[in-house]
Amino acid sequence: KVILLEDVKGLGKKGDVVEVKDGYARNFLIPQGLAVEATKGNLKEL
């Protein structure tokens, strides 16, 4: 699961917690600054 930092077409809006494949999160969303891993600490910051 990841928390979206920006609106991502076809996935969700900023602040949404979405389930995506590990590779998509690690190789695209997180490096592009579009999402962060949905850890307990990150979820509390919402």
Rank of each mutant, 00 (worst) to 15 (best):
L43H: 07
F28R: 04
V18S: 02
D22K: 08
P31A: 13
G12W: 01
V18R: 06
L4C: 01
P31I: 14
A25I: 09
V8N: 02
D16H: 07
V18I: 11
G12R: 00
G23D: 15
V17N: 06
R26Y: 13
G10L: 07
K13L: 10
E6R: 14
Q32T: 12
I30L: 10
V8I: 12
G12D: 00
G41A: 12
G12E: 00
V2K: 01
N42M: 03
P31G: 14
F28E: 09
E6L: 11
K40L: 15
L46I: 09
L29C: 02
E6N: 12
K9Q: 11
N42S: 04
K1D: 06
L29V: 01
A35G: 07
G10E: 09
A38I: 04
V36H: 07
E37D: 07
V17M: 06
L11Q: 02
Y24D: 12
V18M: 09
K9Y: 11
V20R: 01
I3T: 06
K13M: 14
L46R: 01
L5D: 01
N42W: 04
D16R: 05
N42F: 06
V2L: 12
A35E: 01
N42P: 13
G23F: 14
V8K: 02
I3P: 00
L34R: 05
K44N: 15
V17L: 05
E37K: 08
K14H: 06
K9H: 13
L5P: 01
V36Y: 07
E37Y: 07
D22S: 13
K9M: 12
L46P: 14
L11S: 03
L11A: 03
P31R: 14
E37N: 07
I3E: 08
L11M: 06
K9T: 12
K40Q: 15
T39H: 08
E19I: 14
L4R: 00
G15T: 02
K40Y: 15
I3A: 04
A25K: 07
F28I: 11
G23Y: 12
Q32L: 13
A35K: 00
A38C: 11
G15H: 11
D7L: 05
E6G: 13
K21A: 13
G23A: 14
G12L: 00
K1C: 09
K14R: 13
L46T: 11
K14D: 02
G33N: 10
K40S: 15
A38Q: 03
E6W: 11
V36F: 05
Y24V: 11
E45C: 06
G23C: 14
I30A: 02
K9D: 10
E19K: 13
Y24H: 08
D7I: 04
D22G: 07
V20I: 06
E37F: 07
L46A: 11
E37Q: 07
V36A: 07
F28H: 14
L34E: 02
V36S: 06
G15A: 04
L5G: 01
A38M: 04
L43W: 04
K40G: 13
G41Y: 04
G23T: 12
K14Y: 05
K1S: 15
L43I: 10
K21Q: 14
K40N: 14
G12A: 03
L29N: 01
L29R: 00
A25M: 14
G15M: 05
G12T: 00
K40E: 15
E6Y: 12
G12I: 00
L4A: 00
E37P: 07
E37A: 06
G12V: 00
K9V: 13
G15W: 14
V17R: 05
D22R: 10
V2M: 09
L43M: 06
E19W: 15
K9L: 14
V36T: 07
D16P: 00
E6K: 13
R26C: 07
I3S: 03
V36G: 03
L34H: 06
G41S: 14
E45H: 07
L46M: 08
E37G: 04
V2H: 05
K13E: 08
L11C: 06
